[in-house]
Nucleic acid binder design. Sequence first.
DNA 1: ATGACACACGTTATAGCATAACGCAATTGA
DNA 2: TCAATTGCGTTATGCTATAACGTGTGTCAT
Lengths: 146, 146
Amino acid sequence: MNAPVSTPTSAPALTKNQSLVFDVLTRSDAPMSAYTILDRLRDHGFRAPLQVYRALDKLLEFGMVHRLESLNAFVACAHPESECCGQGHGHGHGTVAFAICESCGHVSEFHDHEVDHRLGDWAKAKNFKPAKTTIEIRGLCGACGA
Amino acid sequence: MNAPVSTPTSAPALTKNQSLVFDVLTRSDAPMSAYTILDRLRDHGFRAPLQVYRALDKLLEFGMVHRLESLNAFVACAHPESECCGQGHGHGHGTVAFAICESCGHVSEFHDHEVDHRLGDWAKAKNFKPAKTTIEIRGLCGACGA
DNA sequence: ATGACACACGTTATAGCATAACGCAATTGA
DNA sequence: TCAATTGCGTTATGCTATAACGTGTGTCAT
Ligand SMILES: [Zn+2]
Ligand SMILES: [Zn+2]
Ligand SMILES: [Zn+2]
Ligand SMILES: [Zn+2]
């Protein structure tokens, strides 16, 4: 009874908990910490952090959610579904960057091919095998900037 | 008696605690968490996390130490002291990137002008005012890679 | 000198983020 | 049917970071 529920749409089937977490993140206009998500889902039966973390682990694996390392928080993926450097797993997007407004909390997700290549070249030159790349710009968005 | 001690060399004068923390980080060949630093300094009178965090805050401000967001850990700056995009504060280096080996823990700090500009251009186009940029590549270093 | 101020420090307590370890239930596939 | 896998719920624990309080010490203007 806890198995993922298949849908007629695309994307991997989500379990109930995964759907709940994903919905909360999707509706939010700012990153959320795992504990904030937990609080939003108390009414839906969530009682412990692990319920959230387990769902997040899967959503991250599916590429439907991103973790913001500099914030210890999570956002729903904002990709237009299909991007240039599809790289195999899940949603299929390569390295992505985030611009995080420290005033209003808004996050812009974007991909810059050039940056990606440039870092790839450095890695190749140093014989470094990249697994996951984090790019986060903290600052003030257009609406909040002086 | 707790004021910074002036030295004949360059760089800002460090207090005793700041020096101790910086020395530990400098001697380490891998990033250290604040609590690991604390443990290393018990013999020197450190008893509480705040002693470490306060020293780290200053060292970060001076640009002598960097925080690795994806690791919640800290490293001594590995710059050759003077770099291209000096940007005012402290040591005077612009945005820097880190390649972190997930096997041996070794960290390479580098600066890529092109990447820096590219992200700057994106920000300018979006009217986003960057304050601090994080770039971290996790993977396997040349020595550890298959 | 004396007071105001800034700053480093030490201590205790608390807040916030993340995982370990256990056992149960349902699904899958041999 | 049996074993392997996956998701789930619960309790306890560990790691990371800061709040709030008070102390001592230099600096500098009065
Ligand atoms: Zn995305
Ligand atoms: Zn904003
Ligand atoms: Zn540096
Ligand atoms: Zn290595």
